[in-house]
């Protein structure tokens, strides 16, 4: 189970392995995973003459290393709620994403400008790609993705 272990400014720290670019729901908030980092596994301290198979069988828990994921908060599902420490983090469902991104029947991405300014461009691209899947071939989303692709190419000097 992934859970929130830290909250700061527009970011949350989550204990547990998530995928970079994945949109998650932490409590009643949506967030996108921007980085994943892991600590050195503890088995090095215990291994001695034992091989990996023996460690797995006799000291199984030391193979687990603590993995934390840093997530950028996109927004609150109900209001501007901030996730609380200890809250469970789950993959965001299509329904949640559709609800959040629809206002008066129209597509809305209130965090887009801030996200683009703050996060890596690839993160923004993965968010838009996920939205394209939900809002079936939405022209605005496709135009945004093309623009992001162009920005990437421009930054590479192609």
């Amino acid at each position: 189970m992934c859970r929130v272990v830290g909250v700061s400014d527009r970011y949350i720290e989550v204990e547990g392995k998530l995928r970079v670019g994945e949109i998650v729901k932490a409590g009643r908030c949506l967030a996108v995973v921007v980085s994943v980092s892991g600590e050195k596994p503890e088995y090095i301290k215990y291994a001695g003459e034992l091989n990996k198979k023996e460690i797995e069988a006799y000291l199984p828990d030391v193979l687990n290393s603590r993995v934390t994921s840093k997530c950028y908060i996109l927004g609150g599902l109900e209001e501007n709620l901030c996730p609380e420490i200890g809250e469970e983090v789950l993959p965001a469902s299509d329904e949640d994403l559709k609800d959040y991104h629809t206002k008066n029947g129209e597509l809305t991405i209130p965090y887009f400008y801030q996200m683009l300014k703050t996060c890596d461009i690839e993160i923004s691209k993965s968010v838009i790609k996920r939205l394209i899947k939900i809002f079936d071939k939405n022209e605005i989303l496709e135009a945004l993705l093309r623009e992001l692709d162009y920005m990437t190419m421009r930054s590479m000097g192609l």
């Binding site: 069988a57 006799y58 199984p60």
Partner: peptide, 13 residues
């Protein structure tokens, strides 16, 4: 309470 079944690789807390 940390429980380990030695040899089977099973554990829980």
């Amino acid at each position: 309470s940390f429980r380990v079944e030695h040899g089977k690789g099973l554990w829980n807390v």
